[in-house]
């Protein structure tokens, strides 16, 4: 009996040796997630379904409807709803085009009264919100206040969603739904339109819509819009 007991203890000791060092890991990726609550949740319905793209590598820009360029007068504001880098992309594109505009991704509602045109880039990013030190609730409140101000001043709003499929999500859609009712023109990277949300909206509200294949196509779109 003693021998069996000793062997069991020895086996337990070896198991303990093999298991030493167990610890709860924090982020396995080397990156802290400032907003883990927005990570993807289990969805038995799977990922975005395949859909018919109108754009391609060969046909990078598709215009649906006609844009009235005369609506978009200076001064022009470029801002972000969701703090993704998509507004920065428009900033880079406009620099290439040589446009005159103000790039203020975190601008407050009380500072937008003088702008006649607002280019609002919608796309939520946990890293971007972290970078700006803004939480989701505050960002939604800022967006609501800016849209109220735009309504009050009659500023023209251009809706921009160029983050693609990966930038669709609950917060991005919530912010998009704030902007769409007041916009007069939509620019969308087409893979974000996998559920036809944007083409349906444009059709139902008779809004001009430009679908782009990649973010670099924003240079051409901005050039077409603002070049004299």
């Amino acid at each position: 009996m003693k021998k069996i007991f000793a062997l069991v203890l020895a086996a337990l000791m070896l198991l303990a040796l093999a298991a030493c060092g167990r610890q709860d890991t924090t982020s396995p990726t080397g990156q802290a997630d400032p907003n883990a609550a927005t990570q993807a949740t289990l969805d038995p319905s799977g990922t975005a379904p395949a859909f018919d793209m109108q754009t391609s590598e060969d046909k990078r820009i598709v215009n649906i409807g006609t844009v009235d360029k005369t609506l978009y007068a200076a001064p022009i504001l470029v801002t972000s709803f969701g703090q993704s880098t998509d507004a920065s992309t428009i900033d880079t594109a406009l620099k290439r085009v040589g446009g005159t505009y103000s790039y203020l991704p975190q601008v407050a509602a009380d500072a937008v009264g003088s702008y006649k045109t607002m280019i609002i880039c919608v796309g939520a990013s946990t890293k971007g919100l972290g970078q700006a030190g803004i939480d989701e609730k505050d960002e939604v409140a800022r967006a609501e206040a800016i849209m109220a101000k735009a309504k009050e001043t009659g500023a023209q709003v251009i809706f921009v969603h160029i983050g693609g499929e990966t930038r669709r999500g609950a917060l991005s859609d919530q912010l998009a739904d704030l902007v769409l009712p007041q916009c007069s023109y939509m620019i969308v990277k087409e893979d974000a339109n996998w559920d036809y949300k944007f083409t349906k909206y444009a059709e139902e509200h008779s809004l001009p819509l430009t679908l782009i294949f990649g973010q670099k196509d924003t240079v051409q779109v901005m050039s077409d819009l603002f070049s004299k």
Binding site: A32, P34, E57, Q83, S84, T85, S88, T89, T92, K95, S125, K127, G128, G130, Q131, A132, G133, G163, G164, T166, R167, G214, Q215, K216
Partner: peptide, 29 residues
């Protein structure tokens, strides 16, 4: 933030080959 233009210009050349995004470096991390 000082490298954002470089990242964006690079992404424009990469995005046809691969799915890739640019993210801003959080100031509070």
């Amino acid at each position: 933030e000082r490298a954002m233009d470089l990242a964006t210009l690079s992404l424009w050349e990469l995005e046809d080959s691969m799915k890739i995004s640019v993210e801003a470096s959080p100031k509070n991390l």
